[in-house]
Design a protein around this nucleic acid. Structure first.
Lengths: 123, 123
DNA sequence: TTGACGTATTCCTATATAGGGATATTATTT
DNA sequence: AAATAATATCCCTATATAGGAATACGTCAA
C-alpha cells in the first residue's frame, strides 16, 4: 500500500512545511486572497493553490469567492486533534526542569552527607 | 518532486497512524521489545520493525540491544517541535467559549440598536 | 467583445512510500 | 553444530505525491 494521501487527515496535511507556512500566513484569522499568500511566501501561484486545496479538503481552511478573488480563512479548530495528541506527551519535557532541579538537589544532599561523614570521622 | 521522506522530520514521521499507535505503546517510558509491540498491536513483525526504524531515524525512539532483543524506548522530547508549532493555534479553541459569549453580546447589542432605531422613527 | 487579471486544473516526472512475503542476520539453547 | 528464536532487511507492487510548465476557467474593465 502507498502512503496515505495528504488529504486523509490533518496529520498528513501538516507534514508538508510549505503548508505550515501558509497556515502561518493565515494566522491573523482574516481572509486572504491567494495572491497575498503568493507574494508573501514568494511561491509560484499553482503551488500555493494546490497546497490550499489540500488544506481545504481536510478543513484547515475555508474559501469564499469575492469577485475574481478566492478568499481563504484559517479554520484553526481543525488543528485541535494534533494538539490533543501531542498534549499527552507534554509532561515529559514540562517536568524536565523539575528533573534537573531534582538531580541538583540530590547532588546537594550527597555533598551534605559526605560532609557529615567527614565530620563524624573527625569526632 | 516527490513527497518528503517519512524520515525527514517528526511531522512526516507521525503522519502515519500506526506509528502514533506504536508511540502510544511506548508511552510508559520503559523499554519494550519489538515482540511486545507486535503482540500488543497485533501487527506483522516486519511492519512494526519498519515503523520503529522510521521513528528511530527521526529520534522519537532509541534502541538498545539486550541479548537477541532490541529494546525500544520513547524519546518524547523529540515531539516538542510539534507541540510548539500547534501551541501557536491553541488560543483559537481555548477562547472559543469567550467568543461564543462575545457573539451573544454582539447580537444583544444589535437588538438594542434596532429597537432604538425603531423608537427614533416613531418619534 | 476583447483583453487583462486572479485562480484552478491538467499533464508530466522523479521519488517514496506501506504492506506482504520471503529471507537474512544475530543470539540463544540443546 | 544444529535448531530455535527475535529482529531486520530485501524484493515487489500499487499508489500518491510536489513541483514545473502550460493551459483552462471565471471575472472585471475598457
Amino acid at each position: 500500500m502507498a502512503r496515505a494521501a495528504t488529504t486523509t487527515d490533518v496529520f498528513n496535511a501538516i507534514a508538508e512545511p510549505r503548508r505550515r507556512e501558509i497556515i502561518a500566513v493565515l494566522v491573523d484569522g482574516r481572509e486572504h486572497a491567494v495572491g497575498e499568500v503568493v507574494s508573501t511566501l514568494r511561491l509560484p501561484q499553482p503551488t500555493v493553490s494546490k497546497h490550499l486545496s489540500v488544506l481545504r479538503k481536510v478543513g484547515i481552511v475555508t474559501v469564499s469567492k469575492r469577485g475574481q478573488l478566492r478568499m481563504y480563512r484559517l479554520n484553526p479548530k481543525e488543528l485541535k486533534p494534533v494538539h490533543d495528541w501531542v498534549k499527552t506527551y507534554e509532561r515529559f519535557w514540562t517536568h524536565q526542569i523539575d528533573k534537573v532541579k531534582e538531580r541538583a538537589e540530590q547532588k546537594m544532599m550527597q555533598r551534605i552527607v559526605r560532609e557529615n561523614q567527614s565530620t563524624e570521622r573527625e569526632e
